[in-house]
């Protein structure tokens, strides 16, 4: 259990770093969705099945799609640039 938690936590931090550092916005959004999915497993390990379900359905499901709806509208106009300073 301890090893699994450690692994999950390392993967979560990795996903978060990818989400804020990567160049493409779709990758960033998907990494944030993956982070939410891993977080829902962590909630399960922490004996909170209710929260795990909510996070899986809302955090990783609906939020990701909301981002993609907006991204799909925006991308037709602009190639993103000037991401980092």
């Amino acid at each position: 259990m301890l090893a699994m938690t450690l692994l999950l936590c390392v993967a979560m931090i990795g996903a978060a770093l990818v989400a804020i550092r990567t160049d493409g916005l779709p990758v960033s959004i998907l990494a944030a969705g993956l982070l939410s999915l891993l977080a829902s497993v962590v909630f399960l390990v922490l004996a909170s099945p209710d929260v795990a379900m909510t996070e899986a359905a809302i955090g990783s499901g609906l939020t990701t799609f909301l981002f993609f709806f907006v991204l799909g509208r925006v991308r037709s106009g602009e190639r993103e640039g000037g991401e980092h300073d």
Partner: peptide, 17 residues
């Protein structure tokens, strides 16, 4: 069981999605 209005509502909304 685990779950409830908020989770179920989100599942229904994914069907709409």
């Amino acid at each position: 069981t685990p779950g409830g209005g908020f989770q179920g509502g989100a599942v229904v909304a994914s069907g709409v999605l």
